[in-house]
Computed example of a mutant assay.
Amino acid sequence: MSYLFLKQLHVACVVLSAAGFLLRGVWMLSESTLLQRRAARVVPHIVDTILLASAIAMVVSSAQWPWTSNWLTAKLTGLLVYIGCGTMALKRARTRRQRAAFLLAALVALAYIVSVALTRSALGALVWLT
């Protein structure tokens, strides 16, 4: 597979994953029963698996490892924050207020990850201020 194809697949999965997360967050806050549907529980795992696989394939094919590229290390760190906050938002936080706060934090982490990817700088969007 070409790097360009992998990148396009990765970006498409990022968009699908982010949109799905936001939708599930809205459903969670509105206490919708749609969140309990099988597709809402299965599809995100499929999309995120493809997303992760394409990321690993791009890292291997380009030989840009997170521990040697600051921006990839920042992206990986942002991903861990996003996953942690997302888990709290959709499953683990006890109150709706806590879930909403974690949802917002996860979306901020996601925005950071995207900005790091676009700028290829650990500063993300802040790189334009320097």
Rank of each mutant, 00 (worst) to 15 (best):
P44W: 02
V15Q: 05
F21A: 00
L118N: 07
L51G: 03
A18D: 09
T73Q: 14
I50G: 07
R99V: 03
A40G: 13
K91R: 14
R92K: 15
L22D: 05
R99F: 01
A122P: 15
L79P: 10
I56E: 10
Q64Y: 12
Q98N: 11
L29R: 10
V60T: 10
Y82N: 13
K91S: 12
W27F: 08
L107K: 02
A40F: 13
A55L: 14
S54I: 08
V116C: 05
R38C: 03
L110W: 06
Y3P: 03
W71P: 11
L104C: 05
T49L: 11
R96E: 07
T130E: 14
M88G: 09
V59P: 09
F102G: 02
T77V: 15
C85T: 12
M28K: 13
L129C: 03
Q8H: 14
L126E: 10
L16E: 02
S30I: 05
L4R: 07
M58H: 04
L107M: 15
L123Y: 14
L52I: 12
L90G: 01
L103T: 00
R92N: 10
S61L: 13
G25I: 03
R97W: 12
L9C: 06
L90Q: 08
R41W: 06
I113F: 00
L90D: 07
A109T: 08
R97I: 11
L51D: 04
R41H: 08
V11P: 02
L104N: 01
L107V: 07
I56R: 07
W128S: 08
L103H: 05
L118A: 13
N70S: 14
R41Q: 15
A111Q: 06
L110S: 02
I50A: 14
N70V: 00
R120M: 13
Y112C: 01
S30Y: 05
A109V: 10
A106T: 11
R41E: 11
V47M: 03
L52F: 14
I56V: 15
E31I: 00
S69I: 06
R96T: 07
T68W: 07
V47T: 08
V127K: 14
S2W: 10
V116S: 06
L23K: 08
R92G: 00
L126K: 07
L9M: 11
L90R: 04
R24V: 01
V108G: 01
N70R: 11
V47W: 02
A53S: 11
L103C: 02
I50L: 15
H10M: 07
T119M: 13
S54A: 15
P44V: 01
A106L: 11
L4Y: 05
A57R: 06
T73V: 01
L34C: 00
W27N: 04
T87S: 13
L6A: 09
W128E: 10
V26P: 11
S69Y: 14
I83S: 05
V11C: 01
W128D: 01
S17I: 05
H10R: 08
S2L: 08
M1R: 02
R97Q: 14
